[in-house]
Design a protein around this nucleic acid. Structure first.
Lengths: 209, 209, 209, 209
DNA sequence: GATGAATGAGGTTTCATTCAT
DNA sequence: CATGAATGAAACCTCATTCAT
């Protein structure tokens, strides 16, 4: 009696609605994106949206939080590998910069939530919690890295992780039209890691003396 | 010549409208802030707003751009002083962090514009131009600093200035409720300067060898 | 001839839909009762409703008129028995009060139709006709009763029958939550008969003098 | 600084909206009466309605309760006069029947609320409370009348008052199109008083013997 | 110059009904 | 026959803006 095909179809359509919603919300903001426009972009009639999301607000929540959960999972996965803390963090940076490279809209969506904290207080809370989870994970790995002499010991891990997350968010925000073709993109990625104050091999040697 | 007093009154009221608008737009976003609410916060009736601004959109533009011009002027002033590039930049960082400390709403307003680039294309252009003016100015001073051996020569000034502006914007965005009481605030300010890769006196010595 | 079983099944399902519809329409009104809710209550899917009733309005008509026909048949049956008019009417009162006791929803449904006469003009007509049939029948028996000295002759049968029907309808309407447990229920039933101005045996004697 | 003229204008307009709303709600029911139609009937644009009532539901509440409060005040006033209980009650009956004669729509509105108790539970509560206030007042006067030998002592005042209220409501409900021209109208009014089982002077005499 | 009531276009959401499976 | 996803028209309500006072 199960109808797996239908279930699959539903999920697929839900996904396609969400995808369009992310683009449109990110480009035009919440209020200026009408559900009718989203429906039109997906290629369905206005009513159909509400078969998949109970309200415009719920759609917005999903458009913000689901991609955020995605990047969180991927980022935490990087940090939970075996390996030297410095390498783990470098992998995470790589992962995250690639992410905002390919998912600029998703990131900007999150940012615009943080820009209207009173309007969407619950959503803001969840986004900030998600950021907290990230910074906590980074702090732990960073502290370990400091103990192992891979990072400069004079910086507070709490500050370092926040500075990094701030840079990551700011990058998507302030780079021009399409960050994808920005000539400094690769260098920025490198400098994001520099922010962690890694100790160069030569320096390491000196320091261990 | 009988007008100056009235003129002054008008300017004062215009300013008070703008001040409330900044707060409300920043907290609740453009669409969710009604002109009626702004009027009420200022203590006037709905019609009055339109005696000072031709439309809600014009008010929004002013609320975004006027404070932005303010910080720009102040920042450029820092960089145009006499003095060592490193010191100038350090002063600018100090100035700007103080600014986002005291004018968080104004900053978030700018950020939310950048989060809806298609909605307010003209405004977005102007904000990005303003950022460009800042990064250009920083680049020039930074390049001079590199030549004078005050900054690590291996980083591109274009990248450095963008990384810094990104961090600056990201800080306001990602710090919790009120950045004002964040325990890492002072350290973050210091690390923002670290991003410029300044050369320590000792290092300077070594490098000059 | 291979159909009777299926036919029976259809009738049974139709009946179960009607039953739920009566409850839901009576509780929440026509517009606030969605076909989807009815379907869910019955345990079928939305489309199925329309296999049994051509439209929501047709379902409403049936939900109002079929129970009304029921009570009408039963009531007329009481009046068409052999016996003294006073007894026949007393039986009818008993029958009808029992009916609204057990079928409160059905009665309220009828009443709410009468509360929106322009919305459902046809239905209103049919309900009023049904009431007319009842009052006519009562009038005939009552007139006979008056002639036989069982009822006070000074009242117009047309008025009496309308007063009674009004009381009957008003009772369902104005008694609190559940008329079923109302402490005055039994007394009300007695007073409904009092409305007919029956002549007590003793009085009868006096009057015939 | 007071603007009595404006205030007065507002009240007048509010009243005219309410008046139209009563008619339309009573004729077509809540859901089938659109706010646009009400606005059109009043001669204003759709938005104006919401300057006077926060929502359609609030308008409905007012349309139901305000006329109900009116009749309640008038009815209680009748009962609180000086005089014989029988006379007071007769005055009240007169007052109330005149009321439903001139305000049929207002009455039907109340009835249709009672026909959808789950849809408007709060409103239903208030209407039932209002009815309770009426029946309580009637009971008190009736009890006094019984003690003074004006009413048959064998009936429970609680039952009598409920029977009367039921009849009153039922009359508006079941009389055809316009009760105004119903030939039995005057007789019905008389029979409503008969329901109280008043003792005729002659009977009074006999009973006191 | 300030007021604040009126405007009316436009957005979200609901829901009876259809029809391919 | 039953299903249940899609439809799309229509409703309530908001709010920037105007203008007579």
């Amino acid at each position: 009696m199960a109808r797996p095909i239908n279930e699959e179809k539903r999920l697929e359509r839900r996904k396609s609605i969400l995808k369009e919603a992310v683009v449109l919300f990110a480009e035009s903001g919440y209020s200026n994106t009408t559900t009718a426009i989203i429906a039109q972009s997906v290629g369905v009639t206005p009513g159909t949206i509400f078969q998949y999301f109970p309200s415009k607000e719920a759609l917005y929540y999903a458009a913000v939080l689901e991609p955020l959960a995605d990047i969180q999972v991927k980022s935490l996965a990087c940090l939970q590998q075996e390996g030297a803390p410095g390498v783990l963090i470098q992998n995470m940076v790589e992962e995250q910069f690639n992410h905002i490279y390919f998912y600029t809209n998703e990131l900007r969506l999150v940012q615009s939530v943080l820009g209207q904290r009173i309007r969407f207080p619950e959503l803001t809370q969840k986004v900030l919690e998600s950021i907290k989870v990230m910074t906590d994970a980074i702090e732990r790995v960073y502290t370990k890295g400091q103990l192992m002499g891979e990072f400069n010991k004079s910086f507070s891990p709490a500050m370092i992780s926040r500075a990094y997350i701030s840079l990551l968010n700011g990058v998507g925000l302030t780079l021009g039209e399409s960050i994808i073709h920005h000539p400094e993109w690769e260098n920025l990625k490198g400098h994001a890691f520099y922010l962690f104050a890694p100790i160069q091999p030569k320096e390491k040697l000196e320091e261990s003396e």
